[in-house]
Design a protein around this nucleic acid. Structure first.
Lengths: 216, 216, 216, 216
DNA sequence: TATGAATGAGAATTCATTCAT
DNA sequence: TATGAATGAATTCTCATTCAT
């Protein structure tokens, strides 16, 4: 039946790719929910609705699967960052946009945060082993440096700001709030995940970052 | 001396307590290094130099052991925070001191960061189940609020600063840098853990936080 | 023959089924010999000549394995009971045949007795949880009732005999002798398991039961 | 305080004896509820409200504790049987009384049934090792033989009845009903443990046994 | 007599992974 | 490409028992 149609090879390829993607998403969710140590290959197969053996067929083992998931996650955020086109905006707007983007991305992709945590728990060896690690090296720091320089030149920004430090700060302001919201909520008894709380946090972040960079 | 004295019963007590503390420290290290899912009860016993069975004797199971470790870690940082005596200092100094303390504590207690990560991965259920959770609720936010208020009144600080937001920001600036240093280093190709890098980060944090709070 | 035919998939199926049956028999023997509490999963695997993991693969855990064994045992005796075709015999012969069958079945299936003991020690929760419990409800009581009624009508049997009471009595007469033969032997110093003793017991049982049911 | 009173040695002895009895009762309940394999020394200590070490002090190990429990149980039923004074009654009354006693004893001492089951599961090796085993050998069979003989002589009983067979039958009629009531109830869907059901069973038992022994 | 601390051997169960088709 | 069957090495947890006082 299907053997007689010429589209088979392509279809098979597409099926193969689709299977890999299904596995990748299932794995991402499982790793995000349980961490690398707590993730179960059985559950990944179940989530994917595919045979467990297939995971090994495509990804060799749990470690390499995690690595693939991690690469995927990085590639995704990098692509979105590229879409920002910060250099098309005036420096202050660009910076504000970066802060907003970072906040919103973390908010909408909580799995990214836990994946990062897992990666760091394992001392980022999955990135070190990744041949694509360099591709993950975002041009964002360079772009941010250019934004800061332009701002300094047009007099709106102070000078002497290290773009890497600034980037880490922007990320940290969003990350800690979202990644640790469970312990924070438990201890301070305040729900940090309401829409109102979210918008207050974003305002706060903008004030802190722009207050630091803007001249007077 | 103690061998001939009636302190023997006490020593027995002390042994039990010492064993529990030894287990607690070993568990803290193991959980910090491998996360809750990756930690091994065998290794904890080995680290403690005690029989594995004893862990169950004192802590029932892995979950409750983790909970005890977490409570312990929180109690420790809360005690240190209390020592800061921020209200004895003038507001600007107090704030700077809090930033420095936070940075140094995280730097010297990397296990605290990974324990927090694990706790959050499990949605802080170990804190939720802890009857001491409330005691962990540090008076720090209230103290910080008082510092901010004093600064506002004496004209050095701006008004309208939410102490919880500020605390989360201070923590976040330190936390992200240290907790994620492996992925950051891997991706940006810069060693963030040299003494020089550390002192630069602390300077940056102070500038950001004080720049935000100080008037003009 | 089968190796060259398209029955291969079937063989695979048969392997799974065969493995499950092998496990079931090994488990039955182990449970019969040591009770539920004393049975060892390791030994079951060894008896079956299969990997221990496979037991969990097919039966989830020890409890469900026991349940499966119990269902199996009941199904088996019920099938044999059905073969008796008591309604094809005249009442007295039918009753005698039931007594003989019960005695012989218990004698030849000592594992059935200990399985029942284990099941009762656990308050029959394995049957309560069994969805097939009702299927195990043999039509024997109804059949026996019919036999008793026919005997009453043709004047050989007395009336007013509760078939359930009678069934329990028949079973009890055989069960206690065989199930408790070790303590009985130890205490009364008489070997109850010689062929002669067996045939004497069966005679006694027939006399008791038929003496009770037969008119004068 | 207590060291100065002369009653101390006695008191201590009495305490020792009391402790042993407490342990014995706790053990009996635990073994009855869970069987030998399922019983837990920890739970026995807990039930007794005494330190676990003390059990070993008095009973050496689990096996010997079980043996002691078993001996105790046998001694108890034998004492009660002796109280029956069957030889003071006329044969028919004596036999009826034995049936009633057996039923009631099993009904009021369900632990005896499960202890017997455990003992038999272990092939009565605890009785074989017991030096008191012979003492457990009840004179009941001899007594029952005498009752039967008297009945035969006075023309109320048939001859040729083996007292051991009869005793096993009496016990079996009660035992199976009570010991297996959980599986019987589950399968036949009839509650066998109501007072009404109990009295019906006892009537049935008397009819069966006396119907068998009484002439015509 | 009595007890809390400690232990080694084992027991159920889990998990990543491979086999065979 | 896809899958159900099978496995060995852990892993958590349990249990009877002993130590030390």
């Amino acid at each position: 039946m299907s053997a007689s149609t010429p589209t088979l090879p392509d279809e098979r390829l597409r099926d193969a790719e689709r299977s890999q993607n299904t596995i990748l998403q299932a794995a991402r969710d499982e790793f995000a929910e349980h961490g690398l140590g707590g993730a179960r290959m059985d559950r990944i197969a179940e989530r994917a609705g595919l045979n467990k053996r297939l995971i090994y067929y495509y990804f060799q083992d749990k470690e390499q699967l995690f690595q693939a998931v991690l690469e995927h996650a990085y590639r995704h955020i990098r692509e979105e960052e590229r879409e920002l086109k910060l250099l098309d905006l005036k420096p202050e707007t660009a910076l504000r946009r970066l802060v907003e983007f970072t906040w919103n991305y973390y908010l909408e992709h909580p799995e990214f945060l836990t994946l990062l945590n897992s990666a760091n728990l394992h001392r980022a060896r999955h990135l070190a082993q990744s041949q694509r690690a360099r591709q993950l090296n975002s041009p964002l720091i360079a772009t941010l440096g250019e934004v800061l320089e332009r701002g300094r030149r047009d007099g709106t920004f102070r000078g002497g700001v290290d773009p890497l430090q600034l980037y880490v700060s922007i990320a940290g302001l969003a990350y800690f709030y979202l990644s640790n919201n469970h312990t924070l909520s438990a201890i301070f008894g305040r729900d940090l995940m309401t829409p109102k709380a979210h918008s207050e946090r974003l305002s706060h972040m903008c004030e802190v970052i722009l207050g630091y960079v803007l001249k007077d």
